[in-house]
Amino acid sequence: MPDTASPILDVKGLKTVFRTRGGEVHAVNEVDFHLHAGELLGVVGESGSGKSVTMMSLLRLLPSPPAEMRDGAVMFGGQNLLDISDEELRQVRGSKIGFIFQDPMTSLNPVYTIGYQLAEPLRAHLGMNKTEARARSIELLQLVGIPDPERRLKDYPHQFSGGMRQRVMIAIALACDPKVLIADEPTTALDVTIQAQIIELVKDLRRKLGMAIIWITHDLGVIAGIADRVMVMYAGQVVEEGPVDEIFKDPRHPYTQALLKTVPAVRGARAEKLQVIEGQPPIMMAAPSACSFRNRCAHAYGRCEDANPELTAAGAPGHRAACFLLDEAASKQPETVDG
């Protein structure tokens, strides 16, 4: 994917802090990333690394207080989503950017029928009348592979299995033909056989509708199968990003390297002992002034304590990592070109 075409979504310097009774939690620290039209960006990272909060911040979905968006710009369709009015933002959320939340049970409203929850955004954003919205709802349920969609419109969320609820969530997110779909752990709660169905569905929808997707998951296998590009988060920061093959073949940040080694394989050789990442992730009570991974990093040295490394070019086009070891490697090889 060439970096030259201008991205459909461009996030710069995003910074989100929670004010809690125990002090501030710096959940998202100067996050920069972009998404190209039609591309699937996979987001991985430790639990608590800020994946969900980053994406919720983009669309100002976090209640304030306790959340506080301290800084940043989110450019989408020529406007900064952090500056526009609430009304304009509602238009974007409902119809241009679809969002699938981490927990399908809490995000579908148990007191409304599936049919109502599908039709509501269609009527509100696309101004459809009742009949049109109903026809489109049936079409959407068909699209996500729910059998007997006409009858199922009358059902309530609890009458659907977990996998079907997740499909309904996808259908709702797709209702207004969004340009961007943000899916937060859309298959984590599901069985692998159902996950396989959803992934096939998403691949198929991408072919048909050509939307850009941000897919958050902790499952590196899922990422390997569907992503064009990968962004790795740690302690509220992007520590590495790049084309999917590069990230898996030549990870440059020690966290990414360690992460790839901790997961056992289902095929191929079986390791006698699992590799571990010792220690715990940091508690983010202040903005980082040093490398957040240093206490768990086998390569840490003086510099990692003194300053927080920035993302720097790491070989292949579009591959960047935030680690001082890259500088060291570059200074040993002075002819390296970077952008």
Binding site: V192, T193, Q195, A196, I199, G221, A224, G225, F248
Partner: peptide
């Protein structure tokens, strides 16, 4: 067959049995 593997090259060739 449904378990994805953390390897993009082999993932491209894997065809899960979709139930």
């Amino acid at each position: 067959s449904a378990v994805p593997e953390p390897d993009p090259a082999s993932e491209r060739n894997r065809t899960p049995i979709v139930l």
